[in-house]
Amino acid sequence: MTLNDKIYKWLDDRFKLSELLPPIVKHPAPLNVVSNPLYCLGGTAFLCFLILVITGIFLAMYYKPTPAEAYKSVEHIMTAVPMGSLIRSVHHWAANTMIAAVMLHMMRIYFMGAYKKPRELNWVVGISLLLITTTFGFSGYLLPWDQLAFWATKIGTGIAGSIPVIGGYISLILVGGNDIGAETLTRFFAIHVMILPIAIATLLGLHFMMVRIQGISGRL
């Protein structure tokens, strides 16, 4: 009995792995999914998400969310931290790729009619994921606290603020005052690294569970 067998047996005795694993491991991927590269888009988005989590954690170790320190810390990441420039740039590109992949994934679902019964709710969850992904992008845009970040956020929150009825509240919640400043930066940081990650992880779990239960929609 090799060491691997011993570890497997130890786990199997406790968690019934021999019953648990086969349905996962032997579950066949349908041929149309295997042969059509359009089915890669959702997985691409998820891979980008994982890369974003990892690079994001590294960035959070050096980033300081105050107006006085934010720009300097990003500059420090880009020039002094080993691999810092690569990590931030991969974070940047993975974010843009993720949004593109999510949008293309949605277009595939739409044009293939894959949102129809019984998958209506998964479409709703998917649109929420699209919203969360773009909000991720919007909140991350401010964090470097450079000219582009500041003024794009000023205009963006201004536009959100002119939505009838709820706009004023949205703007107040996001900006945390009348003008973009320290309050806004800490809010955007909290939204970007705490609120949205929890929201997206929950919805991704639901998204994948529904795919698992209902299967991938049939041929075109």
């Binding site: 740039s89 919007f138 470097p144 450079d146 000219q147 003008d179």
Partner: peptide, 23 residues
Amino acid sequence: PAGLLKPADPFDTPSPIYPEWYF
């Protein structure tokens, strides 16, 4: 590589300002 412009300055409006491409 990801860019980084001058530090934010509330009294100096740059032009043009582009949001992210998806907005």
